[in-house]
């Protein structure tokens, strides 16, 4: 991530320490993850110790300290999806992406996570990619759906 971009975000919030969380969220959504250099820059500009930023970055699930893929794949393994065969969907995703939940592939294409309920149990088993719901999935449909992403 370019430092100019980080500076711009900090600038946008007038470099105020009280906007720390918002600044971190902006960097996260701009870059998909929080590189150490970016956090060091924020720490320096806002005069907030790195320990504090580190605590916040590890506290909230919304932040990632490791690179994330361009596409976020969420597989629902909640009760309804589970009984409707979520494990098979997850297996298929693991096979076709080569990664397990919590991991990101080398090309930074996909990051896979399991979630516990996406709130549309009638559509189970559900896979969500970048916020788009793919319902009533079968292993076949899963592979096909993943192939449409670049």
């Amino acid at each position: 991530m370019e430092m100019d971009k980080v500076d711009q975000i900090i600038e946008k919030y007038n470099g105020e320490a009280s906007n720390l969380l918002q600044i971190m969220l902006d960097i996260q959504s701009e870059n998909n993850w929080l590189p150490k250099e970016a956090l060091a820059r924020v720490s320096e500009k806002l005069s907030v110790p790195l320990t504090r930023i580190q605590h916040i970055a590890t506290f909230y699930k919304a932040f990632s300290l490791v690179p994330k893929g361009r596409h976020k794949v969420h597989i629902c393994v909640g009760t309804a999806c589970h009984v409707r065969g979520a494990t098979r969907i997850l297996d298929t995703v693991e096979d076709s992406t080569g990664i397990k939940p919590g991991e990101t592939d080398l090309d930074l294409k996909f990051s896979v996570e399991t979630v516990n309920c996406l709130g549309c149990c009638a559509l189970g088993p559900v896979m969500e990619v970048d916020g788009k719901i793919h319902g009533k999935m079968s292993p076949n449909k899963t592979t096909q759906a993943l192939e449409t992403y670049e």
């Binding site: 320990t51 504090r52 580190q54 605590h55 506290f59």
Partner: peptide, 9 residues
């Protein structure tokens, strides 16, 4: 000095 802090929750 802020050499150490808490992480995670």
């Amino acid at each position: 000095k802020h050499a150490l802090g808490f992480v995670d929750r």
